[in-house]
Write a protein that binds this DNA or RNA. Structure first.
Length: 401
DNA sequence: TTAGGGTTAGGC
DNA sequence: GCCTAACCCTAA
């Protein structure tokens, strides 16, 4: 019976795209056991909930605790960390920082505090422990966010390209695309489609937003999400607070259960330890800052965040910002057929082969034959700026073919 | 992923 | 205009 329950749970996790529905409910109802597979399934359900929270903008820093605990649990089971787990951590950390960028400025201090609290202290500890949660993307975000502190132009650019879309200034046809939904969902699935995540950004993403190696939070379908959330927002807006409150409570209870796997002394009904429950109050003062006419827009006033304290009646900020794209990384080789070039049919600048490249190619052919991919992978430094096709073409020239 | 034909750009 | 090297496209 438990096997069937697992199937049902897996099906639910794979198919449900409603950010307002918590998969934890079903997992709990099915009364799954504590086997390794079941725990992974439960972890997946938590990741799905975090994904939903990101989509809805209801993420808070307590999620970072949760994700860190999940990593410990997986380590205990000698299981590998899922990419979606790492991505969730990166996005959550970034989201919890970005929310302080709008409408405030760096000089207001809250952004600085968030940098110190999340990136310097929390992630600093992870770095020291060699955590797998510290990914390339996370480090790039850290670099950019800290750089933005002393660079008003970068601060402004990040702020403008990562805030949530406007709900009042845009016309009806574009409103839905201004929502977090499509972007988050695109991010989640897009990189599976185009490999390197290149060339799929909208105009706001600007130059260089090219790198995303992870596969995002699993199972999110952009079209479904977009449709679902829009419809849900329209149909159920009056009950948002109550529903979110329940989801927050479910998630917290679930956290206790998961933590129990790590620390048997922690059991259902007990309060999570302080490491879990010390999520900060990220609700900024209720006063509004005048808009500056930078193209940034006013945002949805409806509060949909009960994970943050005091959000019942006052506006919160988590619904305004969310991580959008990984930080800029310039590829050394343009992807030829994946839309990575600004315009189609723009040729790469001609780059003549250096003698050491030719020599490495000769050696590579001796070792691997005409397996251009292996040759390139066998000498990634020398061939950093060459594609497999380049290698093939050069060899053709060399042998006079 | 690879092979092979086509295109482009620069030198002569 | 021809040759060459590098880049691009497409079929298998």
């Amino acid at each position: 019976m438990e096997v069937i329950d697992q199937w049902v749970a897996e099906f639910f996790l794979l198919r449900q795209h409603n950010p307002r529905a918590s998969p934890i409910n079903l997992i709990s109802a099915l009364k799954l056991g504590d086997s390794s597979d079941c725990i992974k399934l439960k972890i997946s359900s938590v990741l799905r909930d975090i994904s939903n929270s990101l989509i809805r903008g209801t993420i808070d820093e307590g999620m970072l605790d949760l994700l860190e605990i999940l990593e410990k649990l997986l380590l205990q089971q000698h299981s590998l960390l899922m990419d979606s787990h790492k991505s969730a951590y990166c996005w959550t950390a970034t989201e919890c920082t970005l929310r302080f960028m709008w409408p405030m400025f760096a000089s207001d201090g809250l952004f600085t505090d968030a940098l110190e609290r999340i990136w310097t202290k929390r992630i600093g500890i992870l770095k020291e422990s060699g955590s797998d949660l510290v990914t390339c993307d996370l480090l790039k975000w850290e670099s950019d966010l800290k750089k933005a502190l002393g660079d008003p132009e970068l601060y402004q650019r990040i702020r403008e390209t990562n805030i949530r879309g406007d709900q009042s200034d845009v016309d009806e046809s574009t409103r839905r695309f201004g929502s977090d939904t499509i972007d988050i969902a695109n991010e989640a699935r897009g990189e599976r489609e185009d490999g390197n995540g290149i060339g799929r950004d909208n105009a706001n993403d600007g130059e260089g937003m090219e790198c995303l190696e992870n596969d995002g939070i699993d199972n999110v379908n952009a079209a479904d999400e977009e449709h679902t959330v829009s419809a849900q927002d329209q149909e159920h807006e009056p009950s948002l607070d109550k529903g979110d409150e329940m989801a927050a409570r479910e998630l917290k209870e679930y956290l206790v259960e998961i933590q129990g796997h790590i620390d048997p002394s922690t059991r259902q009904g007990e309060e999570p330890n302080s490491a879990i429950d010390h999520s900060v109050d990220v609700t900024p003062p209720p006063t509004r800052v005048n808009r500056t006419g930078t193209g940034c827009q006013d945002h949805n006033e409806a509060s949909d965040n009960v994970n943050e304290k005091g959000s019942d009646s006052q506006e919160t900020w988590s619904s305004r910002v969310r991580p959008r794209r990984p930080t800029p990384v310039t590829l050394s080789v343009s992807p030829l057929k994946k839309g990575g070039l600004a315009k189609p049919h723009v040729r790469r600048p001609k780059k003549f082969w250096k003698p050491e490249e030719v020599e490495a190619l000769r050696e590579g052919v001796k070792e691997y034959g005409k397996s251009w991919k292996d040759i390139k992978n066998g000498n990634p430094t020398v061939f950093a700026e060459r594609t497999e096709v380049d290698l093939k073409d050069k060899w053709r020239n060399l042998v006079g073919g």
